[in-house]
Each structure stands twice: as structure tokens, then as C-alpha cells.
Design a protein around this nucleic acid. Structure first.
Ligand code: SF4
Ligand code: SF4
Lengths: 153, 153
DNA sequence: TTTATTAAAGACTAATTTGTCTTAAATATA
DNA sequence: TATATTTAAGACAAATTAGTCTTTAATAAA
């Protein structure tokens, strides 16, 4: 698995937030966890990491919740990944050898270095807005249970 | 991490086997575990999986060990990965959504489907021989401790 | 035939990741 | 102020992955 479960849930939640984005209102974690079929408490902890990384804001109390700290056009997927798994996967050796770099590269280096860069580019160049826009256009699914149209109604 | 530790160790061991490949002699797991700095017992279990997948043969008793069941020119890295982690990473959704495919693809689909195919191609098109050949040519390292030249002497 | 060497098998432990639960703190509103 | 709602924090448990150890089986060679 390229990304951990926690990271995957973080990306899904971020995408949901982009779908229902309104600059000045908060999304309840409880509500989101039900819509995305993710454990409420687990999701809470994941969102705390994302919040602590500055990508979202939280607000306690009635009508509180989470919102994106900037426009979804300005948030890329790699920022979510960085907040949860970190970016090691984009710098480390695919067969786990130490000292990855130009000095003593492992045998797979030439190919892997290209592939991991492409993966990094993919996550760097995909914004939450772009994902949300395509999702709505095609009525894709963010969970087994609900289609996007059902989620944003 | 794209590949599990077990899988990574399996690939390193396979590469070592290709480096010292002689059609008719066996490599001791104990010796290999020391040269590659991998736990002997853990490596034994990993090699059992690879052996059971038919990629290597084992032989008990004095001067026994493991050897490749075909020429390293005919073994690709993906065969090792398949024997240990399986190939799910090359077919599944990057954000873990069920039902990956044309019916209800996730928002990242277009980019991820290309990237994961490239990764699969990379592992399918890299043979143990190719890795070993490049490794020897450049005197790369398979472990922290020893350079290739030290390993095959 | 006895002994030493080697892999196979499986029980066991440790570490990490994933997930659950309880309590505390902040906030809105009655 | 009292109550309900919501996130924060952290203890705890379950599941998975990683790693260790012991015993058994096969084989070579003395
Ligand atoms: S492939 Fe190499 S340089 Fe690339 S990662 Fe492996 S060791 Fe490092
Ligand atoms: S990206 Fe899509 S189609 Fe591709 S994997 Fe995700 S759900 Fe499946």
C-alpha cells in the first residue's frame, strides 16, 4: 500500500470538505464520518493532524466542526499526505536501502527515481478543487454507500 | 511504503542470488543473511514463500541452501513481489475505494491508473540479471555494510 | 551408523498501525 | 448560569506486520 489507512481517510475527508466547501461554515466530523463510513474517533484523530499542519481550522461547540483554511483550489493532495504519512515515500529507496542518492544508489535507482517523482508530481499537481470538480461532473463515489450527488444534497 | 519489509528483503535476497548465480550450487541462507544484514529466521520464512512460488529451489543438508530455479535473465522483480505482497497495489485504488474500475472510478483515477501501470511495467521489465549487471558495473551496495565487490568475492 | 549441517515448520514475542472509548475543554443558546 | 453540542486529548484494545526461537526433517560425510 502506497499510503497508510490514516492517510487515505485523510484524503477522502479532505475531498469531502472540498465538495461541500463554504468559506464560513464548519463541517461536523460526526456527520462526515457517517457519510464517508469512517470511524468517528479515528477520523477525529486524523483531522487533528491535518489541523495541526495548518490545512484546516476547527471550532468547538454547537455548529462547530472543521473547515479548510484556504480555498480548495490552493490545496494539493500532497499537503494532506505530508501531514499524515510524511513525504519519505517520495525520497526513499524502493527496496529500503540506506543512503539513497547519487553517491551509492541501489540497482533499481534509475527507474524508481523517475517513477517516484511522477507520483510526487501527480499528488503535487492535483488540487482538492480539481478532484471535487471532476467528482461532481461524473457523479463518482467517495464511499461504498453514497454517490457524490447524495453526499452534497 | 510501497512494498512491505518482507518483500523488500525478498527482492534484496533475490538480487544477491543473481549476483552469485551458479546454475548448480546452493547459497546458504545463513551466509546470505549475514552478508545482507537481514535476520536469518525472518529471511528463511521469506525465502520459503519464494520457494513455494516456484522461483527458487531449496536443498537441505551440508552444502545445501537455495538456488534460483531459472536463469536471472528470466526472472523479473514483479515475480518476487507477487510471491510476497501480491499484486493488489497495482490494481487497487490509491485512496482505498472499493470497486476500482471503469464503472465507478475515484476522483484520482485518471492519474493514478497511469502511475500504477508505470510502476507495474517497471517491475515487470526489470530482470534480476539486469539489476545484478548494473550493480556489478557500478559497484553499488546491497547493504550498509558491504559493497557488491565485497559481497561476490 | 553417527554426527554435523542445512532448510522447514510453526509457536512465540515485539513493534506498529488501526480502531475504540472515556474524559476534558470550548462554545452557543436557552 | 445551566445545558447541549462539538472538538481535543489521551488511555486503551485489536489487528497486522515484523522479528525470534525451538524443534523437526533431510542430507552429506566421517
Ligand atoms: S533506487 Fe536507489 S537511489 Fe534510488 S532509491 Fe534505491 S537506493 Fe536510492
Ligand atoms: S483511482 Fe479509481 S479507478 Fe483508479 S483507482 Fe481510485 S477508484 Fe479506482
Amino acid at each position: 500500500m502506497l499510503l497508510s489507512k490514516a492517510c487515505i481517510y485523510g484524503v477522502r475527508a479532505s475531498l469531502y470538505m472540498a465538495l461541500v466547501y463554504h468559506k464560513d461554515s464548519y463541517i461536523s466530523i460526526r456527520d462526515m464520518s457517517q457519510k464517508l463510513d469512517i470511524s468517528f474517533h479515528f477520523l477525529t484523530k486524523i483531522l487533528q493532524q491535518i489541523t495541526q499542519a495548518g490545512l484546516m481550522h476547527s471550532y468547538k461547540g454547537p455548529n462547530g466542526g472543521i473547515n479548510l483554511s484556504k480555498n480548495p483550489r490552493e490545496i494539493t493532495i500532497i499537503e494532506i499526505i505530508d501531514a499524515i504519512d510524511g513525504l519519505d515515500v517520495f525520497t526513499e529507496c524502493v527496496i529500503g536501502l540506506p543512503g539513497c542518492g547519487k553517491n551509492k544508489p541501489c540497482p533499481l535507482h534509475e527507474k524508481w527515481a523517475i517513477a517516484r517523482q511522477e507520483l510526487q508530481d501527480m499528488f503535487e499537481n492535483t488540487t482538492l478543487h480539481e478532484m471535487a470538480f471532476n467528482s461532481k461532473k461524473l457523479n463518482l463515489r467517495l464511499s461504498n454507500e453514497f454517490s457524490i450527488k447524495e453526499l452534497i444534497d
